[in-house]
Design a protein around this nucleic acid. Structure first.
Length: 946
RNA sequence: GACCUAUAGCUCAACUGGUUAGAGCAUUGCGCUGAUAACGCAAGGGUUGCGGGUUCGACUCCCGCUAGGUACACCA
């Protein structure tokens, strides 16, 4: 009996069930590299419509983490799907190479500039360090299967790139957007440099909160402006009380601000036997007195804030008069309603101070210590100075109250622990107001497509409110601000655009050292004596903010603006904005047509990943244990618009899903071992209706898959494909066609029909999977019979699928009903199994008693319904003849059906395993059914439908 | 204070508010042994984060709370 097995056409393939991705993927990568896959794609893309996804540069420092992987894989999925959609979609990856983090790393090795190394040597070391980081990260990105121009990525430290940054900045200057000013900027005392908004992080910090007296110098003048309570004036000194959490800024105090709209109260206090009068906002009175622990007080007069303007006060510890000024920024949320104002140490103070022409005094040095000559505090660090200021106030009788307060305070994002101070220094700014940059940017934002749409509101809010962009840094490893300013007037050199271009050309040849080594007279000749050469570097956010300039506008085959920028949602304040501002300044529009953002990666409980929590999932680990395709599938399966959860379990589930998809592909391929599309492919019209249904189902799925790629909704596409493998294929179609595949003559129409369907389906499927499971899809592709391109990534979506017409007798609705009938049959089967009356359904006879409509439908299949049920027999009968034991089912179409099953009384055919009455009727094959006899010795059976 | 998120153990559905909230995976039981470190069938599993409200009707709209995430802020 075993001999009949040889007469079957069993599945056969070398396509391995076990993926072994960790080993196989690197081999595939090697092959792609050898065949120059990316080069071939570009060559073949010539003349096609463009799709340009511009890569945001990761910082060239450290190992890539899961967030990097998510970002690059999402980009890769999009780019590949665009190639498959017939676009020319070149992808140029890049790195951000200048800046402080690299300096810090290099300092650890070679020390600070000026000690063991000079600036030039230090920059060389930085360049070297960055190059090594890029190399390492590049390798890791490529290992993930990300396809792009890895041979020629963009680096912001390339000479050409550095020159383009200089040119771009020169253009921003020429367009009149740049200001030099002495404004308070975020300052890190560890970096000893100004910071950008993007370099500031907020964290809780405990600070001393103090209330301080500012003595009123002309009490009579004040009293004359007040409304007195019952003619009282009280007695004792009069002081305005301010509240502050930064005592160290008091040396720079230039004024006290009050809100013109508030009412202020003059309060008579008696403490320790002496009288005094305090002036503070009426609304803050109760809280403040409570804080001071003063119960014995009485309001003697009221005064509108407006009337206090110009009053003279004594600085609490310096011999200095400071005025009362008015400011809308004074609130009643905390404090006393009177605000100590130090224009050198705060943005608001600076703004209101400049209205009154107050000096912008900054007694604090770059290292955070008070400058030589600062009375009382010279040499003291501002943070330790707090105590000293408080002591001084105490000694002078100016301290009303002192307590500790915990509040959110800005810190340096590199140094984490280092609190930032506001410090007025001469800096360069891209002004938001000049030449209406803010309005231009707002208008540009409006024209861009933001996905998800709340991204628009977010960036609008930021652009609307952001201060001028401080672009100068006092660092070594950065692109220089290549300007000359007049020593007396501070004006830019009149030939600035020309000079910038000359410098850019030099930098193009020698890198940024060209500027640092340049002597002023080299460029300015006789004028040199009148000009200062700026030694500041540019904020690295400016570097990355002009990547479109050095990449999109510089390289052939790319377009500006880009079709898409895609980064994490944190880049609304970072790259999206820096790119927007420079582009608006120089071109008047955004550098991108659409912006897509993804969320952050969190652990299984939605918590942030951190080393201390031990919940970090490293992409390298996943790749090593499961393979890059598993990581890629996880990215695709997860809705990236919000937080993306990863954990071992989640990855394991994804690996399970992967195996299902892979095994489906394997099974499809295994049924094509003897199929040559050139010879055996059938026309749609020649195929069996069930096979046409299968192709049409794939056709409809493909429409959904393509739509999902189009909308960047990869998780829906993943679910659909996986469902297709499990439900339509595994649970229905593939199970049914086994009989035909195995038992019919090899070259019979029935068998070739199913193979045609399988061929179409697996060909299409390889394409669906290619952007996500690039390695696996490529592998499937190589096992497909017939002529084809070298890699699935060079292909376009499969075009040979077709739909099923509504007019067909066996249309989708028909097959839907058949599936429901089959589901009902399977439920009855299960009962039989539970009663131990049956195992295989091939040993069961089925009687289906049908209502009128469904009877006619099922009749269409004739005897072939049994192949769909995979039963020994299937009789379609009238419900009027139903037996008492038949079980009732109602279909979704409201058709009614009664099913009765019983074990077949007949023998099992040794070949096809069906239990048939005609087993043994042929003397030469006593163990076979009539059908099998025909299939072996005769012309073969005829199949019409399934 | 602002914005986003919260649906079975996991990943996702549920159109503009409309029957009993759906899939797949996982789990459990069963079958098959011609996809076998596979395949098929079936079953259990949800107070849609919590509490209010609007409505004939709420996963869906409104308010509050909780948890988590993110970006920001002139808290002096």
């Amino acid at each position: 009996m075993a001999e009949y097995k040889k007469t079957l056409n069993l599945p056969k393939t070398k396509f391995p069930m076990k993926a072994n991705l960790a080993q196989r993927e690197p081999e595939t990568l090697k092959r792609w590299e050898q065949m120059d896959l990316y080069g071939k794609l570009c060559a073949q893309g010539r003349g096609r419509p463009k799709f340009i996804l511009h890569d945001g540069p990761p910082y060239a420092n450290g190992e890539i983490h899961i967030g990097h992987a998510v970002n690059k894989i999402l980009k890769d999925i999009i780019v590949k799907s665009k190639w498959l959609s017939g676009f020319d979609a070149p992808y140029v990856p890049g790195w951000d190479c200048h800046g402080l983090p690299i300096e810090l790393q290099v300092e650890k090795k070679v020390g600070k500039v000026g000690r063991k190394v000079d600036a030039k040597g230090f920059r060389d070391a930085c360049r070297d360090y960055a190059a090594r980081q890029v190399k390492k990260q590049s390798k890791d990105f490529q290992r993930l299967g990300v396809l792009g121009d890895w041979k020629d990525p963009y680096l912001t430290m390339d000479y050409q790139f550095e020159a383009d940054i200089i040119r771009a900045f020169g253009k921003v200057v020429s367009n009149g957007h740049v200001d030099q000013g002495c404004k308070p900027v975020y300052w890190c005392t560890d970096c000893q440099s100004a910071l950008a908004e993007a370099e500031v992080e907020y964290a809780d910090r405990t600070s001393p909160a103090i209330d301080v007296r500012f003595r009123v110098l002309e009490p009579e003048a004040l009293l004359s402006r007040c409304h007195h309570v019952e003619g009282k004036t009280g007695s004792g000194e009069i002081s305005v009380v301010i509240w502050t959490t930064t005592p160290w800024t008091l040396p720079a105090n230039q004024a006290v601000a009050v809100n013109p709209e508030f009412e202020y109260a003059l309060v008579q206090c008696r403490q320790d036997g002496h009288d005094e009068r305090l002036l503070l906002a009426s609304a803050m009175l109760k809280d403040s007195m409570g804080r001071y622990g003063i119960d014995d007080y009485q309001v003697v007069a009221y005064c509108p804030g407006q009337a206090l303007e110009g009053m003279k006060l004594a600085h609490p510890f310096y011999q200095r008069e400071v005025p009362v000024i008015l400011g809308e920024h004074v609130t009643q949320e905390a404090g006393t309603g009177a605000v100590h104002t130090a224009p050198g140490h705060g943005q608001e103070d600076y703004v209101v101070g400049s209205r009154y022409g107050l000096p912008v005094d900054n007694p604090v040095g770059a290292d955070g210590r008070f400058l030589e000559g600062t009375e009382l505090f010279a040499g003291e660090s501002v943070f330790t100075a707090n105590d000293k200021v408080i002591e001084t106030l105490q000694a002078r009788g100016a301290l009303v109250h002192h307590q500790a307060v915990t509040h959110s305070y800005p810190h340096c994002w590199r140094h984490k622990q280092t609190p930032i101070i506001f410090r007025a220094t001469p800096q360069w700014f891209i002004s938001m107001a000049k030449n209406s940059l803010r309005q231009t940017a707002m208008a540009a934002v409006d024209k861009v497509e933001w996905m998800p749409d709340w991204g628009k509101a977010r960036i609008q809010g930021m652009v609307e409110n952001r201060p001028d962009w401080c672009v100068s840094r006092q660092r070594t490893w950065g692109v220089p601000i290549t300007l000359f300013v007049h020593k007396q007037t501070g004006a830019l050199h009149p030939r600035t655009p020309e000079l910038v271009e000359q410098v850019a050309q030099a930098v193009e040849k020698q890198g940024i050292d060209a500027w640092f080594e340049l002597r002023t007279e080299d460029l300015l000749g006789d004028e040199a004596a009148d000009y200062d050469k700026i030694s500041d570097t540019l904020d690295v956010w400016f570097d990355s903010g002009v990547t479109y300039e050095a990449v999109l506008r510089r390289r052939e085959g790319l377009t500006f603006p880009a079709d898409l920028y895609l980064e994490g949602s944190d880049q609304h304040r970072g790259w999206f904005q820096s790119s927007l501002l420079t582009s608006c300044a120089n071109y008047g529009h955004a550098p991108y047509n659409a912006v897509l953002t993804h969320g952050f990666t969190v652990d299984k409980d939605g918590k942030k990943m951190s080393k201390s929590e031990g919940n970090v999932v490293a992409p390298q680990d996943v790749t090593k244990t499961y393979g890059a395709d598993i990581l890629r599938l996880w990215v695709a399966a997860t809705d990236y618009r919000t937080e993306m959860r990863v954990s071992d379990e989640i990855i394991k589930r994804i690996a399970d899903a992967y195996r299902r998809i892979r095994n489906t592909a394997k099974y499809l391929l295994s049924n094509l071992s003897d199929f040559d599309p050139q010879q055996h492919l059938l026309e749609p019209g020649a195929m069996l209706p069930l096979d046409r249904w299968a192709v049409a189902t794939a056709y409809r799925l493909q429409q959904q898959v393509l739509a999902a790629y189009e909308r960047y909704e990869f998780h829906t596409l993943y679910h659909r494909i996986h469902n297709f493998c499990s439900v339509e294929m595994g649970g229905f179609y593939l199970d049914i066609i086994k009989d035909r595949q195995y038992t019919m003559p090899q070259d019979s129409a029935g068998r070739r029909s199913a193979q045609t369907a399988i061929y179409h389906i697996v060909s299409a499927m390889a394409c669906w999977l290619a952007p996500v499971l690039s390695f696996t899809a490529d592998e499937i592709w190589r096992y497909l019979p017939g002529e084809r391109k070298e890699s699935v990534l060079l292909a376009e979506w499969y075009t040979q699928l077709f739909d099923l017409d509504e007019q067909e007798e066996m249309n989708f609705a028909f097959w839907q009903q058949v599936i429901e009938v089959r589901d009902a049959f399977l439920k009855e089967m299960e009962k039989l199994r539970n009663q131990e009356q049956a195992g295989s359904s091939l040993a069961v006879d089925a009687d289906l008693y049908c209502g009128q409509e469904i009877y006619q439908q099922l009749q269409k299949l004739g005897d072939e319904l049994r192949f769909i049920l995979i039963s020994a027999s299937a009789r379609v009968l009238r419900d009027t003849d139903k037996t008492p034991g038949a079980v009732h089912y109602t279909l979704s179409t409201n058709d009614e059906l009664w099913i009765s099953l019983r074990p077949s009384p007949h023998r099992k055919c040794e070949r096809c395993w069906h239990f048939r009455e005609d087993v043994g009727t042929d003397a030469t094959h006593p163990d076979l059914c009539g059908r099998c006899v025909q299939n072996i010795d005769g012309a073969g059976e005829a199949r019409c439908y399934a």
